[in-house]
């Protein structure tokens, strides 16, 4: 088995584990972490595919897609965390 294929399968496993955790753990912070790990798994599948066969040229398009994906993921996570903090402060009676 070649190395890139091995890492795409690792990516698939990460996505599956994160899917399980996303629905079985209820704390929003954990669910955000699960989504981030799922994202990493998906990015791994993309990049693994980009060099699935040794000897072919590495394809820069998936690399660019993953970089965009990372930025989008961190933006969404950051906003989610602010929302969470806001909700927690509302729970403490602050405004």
């Amino acid at each position: 088995m070649n190395m890139a294929l091995w890492f795409t399968l690792v990516g698939a496993a990460l996505a599956a584990i994160a899917l399980h955790a996303f629905f079985s753990r209820r704390h929003p912070l954990r669910r955000l972490i699960a989504l981030n790990i799922m994202g990493s798994g998906i990015f791994l599948v993309l990049i693994g595919l980009a060099r699935l066969y040794p000897g072919t040229l590495p394809d820069p398009v998936p690399h660019a897609m993953v970089l965009t994906g990372i930025v989008v993921a961190v933006s969404a996570t950051a906003f989610g965390l602010v929302l969470l903090r806001r909700l927690a402060r509302l729970g403490r009676g602050e405004t």
Binding site: A50, L57, D59, P60, V61
Partner: peptide
């Protein structure tokens, strides 16, 4: 295999 790719375009 071989995988389709855009490397040849870039």
């Amino acid at each position: 295999s071989p995988p389709p790719s855009l490397a040849g375009q870039v």
